[in-house]
Design a protein around this nucleic acid. Sequence first.
DNA 1: CTGTTAGCGCGTTCAA
DNA 2: TTGAACGCGCTAACAG
Lengths: 328, 328
Amino acid sequence: MSTIKDVAERAGVALGTASRVLSGSAQTSPESRAAVLAAAAELNYVRNGTARALRRSRTEVLGLLVSDIRNPFFSELAHAAESEAMRRGYAVLLANANEDAAQADEYLRIFATQRIDGLLLSPQGPISPQLESLVASRLPVVLLNRSLDGLDAPLFSTDNAQGVALVLDWLQGRGHTEVAFIGGPTAFSTAAERRVAYLAGRGSHGISMDDRLIDEGDFLADGAEAAMLRVLDRGKRPTAVFGVNEPTTLGAVRGLRRRLGAVEAARVEVISFDDVDWFELATPPISAVRIGAAEIGRLGVAGLIDLIEGRPVSSRRVATSLVDRALS
Amino acid sequence: MSTIKDVAERAGVALGTASRVLSGSAQTSPESRAAVLAAAAELNYVRNGTARALRRSRTEVLGLLVSDIRNPFFSELAHAAESEAMRRGYAVLLANANEDAAQADEYLRIFATQRIDGLLLSPQGPISPQLESLVASRLPVVLLNRSLDGLDAPLFSTDNAQGVALVLDWLQGRGHTEVAFIGGPTAFSTAAERRVAYLAGRGSHGISMDDRLIDEGDFLADGAEAAMLRVLDRGKRPTAVFGVNEPTTLGAVRGLRRRLGAVEAARVEVISFDDVDWFELATPPISAVRIGAAEIGRLGVAGLIDLIEGRPVSSRRVATSLVDRALS
DNA sequence: CTGTTAGCGCGTTCAA
DNA sequence: TTGAACGCGCTAACAG
């Protein structure tokens, strides 16, 4: 693989001149510029990013740490983030923490070793020592989706209150009064925000204030199924169910079918925070709030680059939209 | 951020000794070892990966180029690949080509600049100039899922013939003779292999050889829906449909419902290559061949590292399993 | 077992 | 505008 030195020799100029041409800095005469460019093309020159990074102490690599890329929310986010980053000349290192704090720390160590220029972080638990030391080293960080106590970084997240308002309007419009709410762990700011917004808004939307209709799972299907069963076993018979998350909604539907049977379960309308194409296949079809995961990813990268380049950045909430699949 | 030089000074040893201790090479005395480790801990030393990479001409970074991480197959694969890579001490750069050859080439250029140690490639179209030059530079490459004419690299892929055999057995067991096959673009080796296996096996499984039951889409929902409609409009009325892909299956179901109405469509059994949890919600539930995307990702990374370290690697087919959701 | 030193490839400063 | 030279932080080769 040829180096800038080879290019310079072939172009008949000094190494410094070749560097200036190839990195577009300073002024160069048209002649040497043409000669260098031609030589580079002939030699199939590809800049050595590691040497460049060492010299400039900037890698043009961003780190993206999410809990699990298999979660459609994160895969959509990662897709948008990666494509925005590449548009702006940055590559993206991917890491899945798998809801495991130790593993997240291990990744942060690797990111530190690789000298990423900035970090996009979707926090799992509380702030960790490794993260603390990264922040202390003044690594630019933006938060995705969830906030993190003790870390003052811009947050790009779903407008949960606005999304829940859409759900409440839909429930009211469909005439539901007995609505089960299957939430998630309130340690997660997203779950907490959705719960608070729902509890605060249900009264004014004509929905029963009976707390036996409220339960919470673990943001996963199994925990949500158990929560749904608990609601039913309290003797409540909701006409609609609100699942606060995509896996939660799946679990809730499973619970309904298990306790009520397919026929009766099909009489219960379901609405979800978080949308999936396949919701249209359910009986009845499941309506959902669509989260702007792509927008969050895009804004996150744009914000992070602003941070890296020293521009001020402020947090942003991304609005959701409702996919109404109600049949009539 | 402290350097190895700082560590050496604080430990009272020479720079070389510190390097030996910190990179675990050669022998070092217990005393200097302890001193260096202590100094490193105190100074919060984090190795500079760019400098190390420049010196060793190995970055310990792998590139993963897929068409779209939002596709569940790839997100599962990426998850497993990333976690296997990290287990082996490698980080992973992610790129989404979005089915766009020019974009794929752009990413390959970035990968080359970043001096990745190896490439995991799920090819889109034919071999590109950029890829050609990477291969010429002797970059280790493994192929995922699809083979690529003109590139002799190990391939880790689904055992399509075995998967289709599972589907054929299932169809036969359920007593279906009129089966619609909705395929994908045969330019993709996966689509081609599945089609060939199906066409070759249907006769011996008691399935109609009428080619009006066969059509193909574009591996996406819209194209598949159109293909399903074409089959129905030829006057065929299948009792089962085989979608060759997850989006294809979604499109096929949409087509069935659109032409036949929900009630009649629910009389048609559907089976898919590629599984999604939500299939259980359909009426009737959709059975599916589950692809070992995670296994492919894991094997791909293991194979790539073997290649990087000079060990011989051979292609592998990963077996599928059937998720049977038939009600009776 | 340890210290010293060269140089990986590049960007940038200093003179000219 | 250009050439020469330095050094980013690290590993590896060599001498002791």
